[in-house]
Computed example of a mutant assay.
Amino acid sequence: MFVGLGLPVVTAYPPTTQVWEAGSGIAELATVTKAADQLGYHHVTCSEHVAVPVDVAAERGGVYWDPLATFGYLAAVTDRIRFATSVLVLGYHHPLEVAKRYGTLDQVSGGRLVLGVGVGSLREEFELLDMPFDDRGARADDALAAIRSAFSTGTPTHDGPFYAYDDVMVEPHAVQDSVPVWVGGRTRRALRRAVDLGDGFSPFALTPEQVSQMLSSVDLPDGFDVVLTSGLLDPLGDPEDTRRRLESLRDAGATIITASLTASSLAHYTDQLAELRAVAESTGACFDAPTAP
């Protein structure tokens, strides 16, 4: 089991955003990410929303840093840590846009991209972007197959129900032979999409027990990752609770955990990072992830 980090600052989600994050920017993000890189964390995450209606932002948050720009900067100041979109909404993009832009990110980061994707659920945002909403699941399936066909080659072809292309060049493309794809969601349909079209399942808003029950209903392929989120942890203040929660995620089937940390300042946050590694290692977690190609 590996441990990654849900980056602070990049998302202002009302229930979890902390006071120290207000006014923080790329310098603080770089400090956190470099510390996580040096400690051997597996990945950092960044979410995507383009434009959130003001009334919706009160519940979902209105600040969402763009993952492509954010990760491009952080790639230049780190060496090993991976960059996972959590999640990129497939319905907001043409597949070739994703293949080109994130394939370029994979190039400039030295093969450290993990593409986390989701179908999306905010109808107002789909409508604002003039993207179809009602058939977004079927479109996402086709988009995901199309993206995967384009990541590892400069001359992709695809012929699907929503997207089709041939005789085109998309350069640069990803440096990894196969960019890992984690599929988000919280339904059995999302899990099936992950098994059929992805390399991992990254559910949200499910208890460890619910995840374990869902996983027991399918045969997971060899090497398939289950990526679970921890919620806010306080390893310095309550190491036993942190250990119990990590163990419950491991026992539910997690192969990778995306951790979030409570902190009162940037310095406190980086101290929490170091302590989380110590606590997580006591549960069998690994902080010696193989380097990217």
Rank of each mutant, 00 (worst) to 15 (best):
Val3Phe: 04
Gly6Thr: 01
Pro8Asp: 07
Val10Tyr: 04
Thr11Pro: 00
Pro14Arg: 07
Thr16Pro: 05
Gln18Glu: 11
Trp20Cys: 06
Gly23Phe: 12
Ser24Val: 02
Ser24Glu: 01
Glu28Gln: 15
Thr31Ser: 11
Lys34Ala: 09
Ala35Ser: 13
Ala36His: 07
Leu39Gly: 05
Val44His: 11
Ser47Ile: 02
Val54Tyr: 14
Val56Leu: 15
Ala58Ile: 04
Arg60Phe: 12
Gly61Asp: 11
Gly62Tyr: 12
Tyr64Cys: 09
Pro67Cys: 03
Ala76Lys: 06
Asp79Lys: 14
Phe83Met: 01
Ala84Lys: 02
Ser86Asp: 09
Leu88Arg: 01
Leu90Asp: 08
Gly91Tyr: 08
His94Met: 05
Lys100Cys: 02
Arg101Thr: 06
Arg101Asn: 12
Leu105Arg: 08
Leu105Cys: 10
Asp106Pro: 01
Asp106Lys: 04
Leu113Tyr: 06
Leu115Lys: 09
Gly116Ile: 01
Gly116Glu: 10
Gly118Ser: 10
Gly118Ala: 10
Val119Leu: 11
Gly120Glu: 08
Ser121Lys: 12
Glu124Asn: 13
Glu124Ala: 15
Glu124Gly: 13
Leu129Cys: 09
Leu129Ser: 05
Asp130Leu: 08
Asp135Cys: 03
Gly137Thr: 13
Ala140Tyr: 09
Phe162Trp: 14
Asp167Gly: 12
Val168Leu: 15
Val170Pro: 11
Glu171Ala: 14
Pro172Arg: 12
Trp182Ser: 05
Gly184Ile: 01
Gly184Asn: 05
Thr187Ala: 05
Ala190Asp: 07
Leu191Val: 07
Ala194Lys: 02
Gly198Ile: 01
Gly198Gln: 07
Pro203Asp: 06
Phe204Met: 09
Ala205Leu: 15
Thr207Lys: 05
Pro208Gln: 02
Val211Ile: 13
Val211Glu: 03
Leu215Pro: 12
Ser216Trp: 00
Ser217Met: 11
Asp222Gly: 15
Leu228Pro: 10
Ser230Cys: 07
Leu233Ser: 06
Thr258His: 08
Ala267Gln: 14
Ala267Met: 02
Ala267Ile: 07
Asp271Leu: 06
Arg277Met: 02
Glu281Tyr: 03
Glu281Asp: 01
Thr283Asp: 00
Gly284Thr: 03
Ala289Lys: 01
Pro293Asn: 10
